[in-house]
Design a protein around this nucleic acid. Structure first.
Ligand SMILES: [Mn+2]
Ligand SMILES: [Mn+2]
Ligand SMILES: [Zn+2]
Ligand SMILES: [Zn+2]
Lengths: 126, 126
DNA sequence: TTGCTATTGCAACACAGTTGCATTAAAATT
DNA sequence: AATTTTAATGCAACTGTGTTGCAATAGCAA
């Protein structure tokens, strides 16, 4: 169930995603909004924003949760299925606007896939 | 640093992977070997078996750790890079012997990639 | 304003995974 | 076979991310 009331917590969280181009980890959000929003609230609001298809989430290579803005998703379907890129140098994580083809696999029915690519980002390469 | 002594714990763990075709989660191993090996030891032995390229590990969609046998890997290089498949019906997780092409991405240097596919396995597909 | 109830903060919890340290047991040495 | 060395183990306590229950608070509609 998504957001129904425009609260201070919702605004503060959305503001973080407006000033950020990439993804933000929940850990980072808790640090940034410490003293402003309780961590329980942060988890709960993020969860609702995902239900509303305003944000989407994924896990990094350590199993920690990250969120990023959705683009062109509707409430009942996330359209922006894409890989995520984790920079091994600076730690930045972002969404990659590329499509990766998952081939059919014999006798199996594929529902979804999660792809995490690790390497050096635009700023750290070279 | 890998295994140097052939202990009871090493044998018990390797035996689990011998009687299993797919991957096994650490959680499952701890349950199975309860009263036989301490969970700390399980984590430590698995870690060493991975160093020795006997096992490899990955995270499932909940961020929990799984291990599976390596095939054709050498101590300093894991050759069996492949996606993992998580059955949404029976919970089984296994290695997929297919190659998925990750395209080059402009201005980024790709070091590795992790692919987790979710769906219905051979036994659960209708 | 008032009342309804979604949202929040807090404290306590869940639980996978880690660490420090004393004890045990491989396996090399005598 | 006994001794020595030290890798490996068990245990208890811890870490850190994420969750839950509940009383207090604050959107928002009437
Ligand atoms: Mn994304
Ligand atoms: Mn595998
Ligand atoms: Zn970078
Ligand atoms: Zn299945």
């Amino acid at each position: 169930m998504g957001i129904t009331r425009r609260t201070k917590s919702v605004d503060l969280l959305l503001a973080e995603f407006d000033k950020e181009s990439g993804a933000i980890s929940v850990i980072e959000l808790i640090e940034r909004l410490n003293y402003k929003i309780n961590k329980t609230t942060i988890y709960r609001v993020l969860d609702k924003l995902e239900d509303d298809a305003i944000l989407h989430s994924f896990l990094d290579s350590n199993g920690n949760k990250w969120y990023a803005k959705c683009e062109g998703c509707s409430k009942h379907r996330h359209y922006d299925v894409h890989p995520h890129f984790e920079c091994m140098d600076c730690g930045k994580v972002d969404c990659l606007p590329v499509e990766i083809l998952i081939p059919n696999i014999k006798n199996r029915q594929i529902e979804s896939s999660q792809i995490l690519i690790k390497g050096k980002c635009e700023e750290c390469v070279g």
